[in-house]
Computed example of a mutant assay.
Amino acid sequence: MIDDVWLADTRTSYDTVAVSYAAQVRDALADEPYLSGSLALFADLVRRAGGGPVADVGCGPGHVTAHLRTLGVDAFGIDLSPAMVDLARRNHPDLRFTVGSMTDLDLADSSVTGLLAWWSLIHVPDDTVPRVLGHFRRALHPGGPLLIGFHTGDGTRLKTSGYGGHAMHVHVHRRPPERMVGWLRDAGFTVETQMLIDLDERVPGALLFARRQR
């Protein structure tokens, strides 16, 4: 029941802001050399792992999925919000997008070579993150790379509006990188690299590169 509540709130919130959110992030990577560089590294790791499909879980309007395709990655997107998926399909008709939840990830075992969670874990409660990471591990090929981006810090705030002032009702979780590292190791991942970004900004972030243990 608790899962149903936060998932429903997140779905409704992002359905509400989908159009304004997509407009805001459309060209975001152009001005973010560290983020675009990390995606290029991830694409290289996917190629080194043998290539194959890559799931962008929590893809939103699909701008990062599309960017991965420009890097030669066979990426597809999954998002909780039907409105986001509709926009992604409209804006990137050559790519595949489906509606789904990372808490019950509808991917076959070992079916993807790589998996990306690009600031899409920030609304998932702490007690649910290990289950989500278990799904990530199950879906990845042994040795497949995982890239996670998230807000750093410690604490949670309720976001009641955003992206043009539209009403939202989502909890935003900030986490110390070491907490995420611990969850990844417990889920069966080897953590390879950590990158901290925007350290002097209001909301700093982190990127973790991990790999499913064989």
Rank of each mutant, 00 (worst) to 15 (best):
M1Q: 09
M1H: 11
I2P: 12
D4P: 08
W6M: 10
W6F: 13
L7D: 02
T10Q: 01
T12G: 08
S13C: 00
Y14I: 03
T16N: 11
T16D: 06
T16K: 10
V17F: 00
V17K: 00
V19L: 14
V19W: 11
A23L: 14
Q24M: 14
Q24H: 14
R26K: 13
D27K: 15
A28Y: 05
L29I: 12
E32W: 08
L35N: 05
S38A: 15
S38W: 04
L39C: 07
A40Y: 08
L41D: 14
F42R: 00
F42T: 05
A43D: 04
D44G: 08
V46D: 00
A49W: 02
G52L: 08
P53V: 10
P53I: 04
P53K: 15
D56V: 07
C59K: 04
C59P: 01
G60Y: 03
G62L: 06
G62N: 03
H67F: 15
L68G: 02
R69W: 09
R69M: 14
T70N: 05
F76V: 08
G77K: 02
S81M: 02
S81W: 00
P82V: 01
A83Q: 13
M84Q: 07
V85C: 02
V99G: 02
S101C: 07
M102V: 12
M102H: 06
D104M: 05
L105G: 06
L107P: 05
T113A: 12
T113W: 02
G114E: 00
L115M: 07
L116V: 12
S120I: 06
H123Q: 10
H123Y: 00
V124A: 02
P125W: 08
D127P: 01
T128I: 05
P130F: 06
R131C: 07
V132C: 04
V132S: 08
V132F: 09
R138V: 14
A139G: 08
P142D: 02
P142Y: 07
P142H: 04
G144A: 11
L146F: 06
L147D: 01
F150M: 11
F150Q: 04
H151A: 06
H151M: 03
D154L: 06
T156L: 09
R157N: 09
R157A: 05
L158T: 15
L158M: 10
L158H: 15
K159S: 05
T160G: 06
S161T: 14
S161I: 09
G162C: 13
Y163C: 09
Y163H: 15
G164I: 13
G165S: 09
H166T: 11
M168K: 10
H169E: 10
H169C: 09
H169I: 00
H169R: 15
V170E: 09
R174C: 10
E178S: 13
R179S: 14
M180K: 01
M180R: 01
V181D: 03
L184W: 03
A187N: 07
G188V: 01
F189G: 01
T190W: 10
T190D: 15
E192H: 15
D200W: 06
D200E: 15
V203S: 12
P204A: 10
L207I: 09
F209E: 02
Q213C: 12
Q213A: 13
R214H: 09
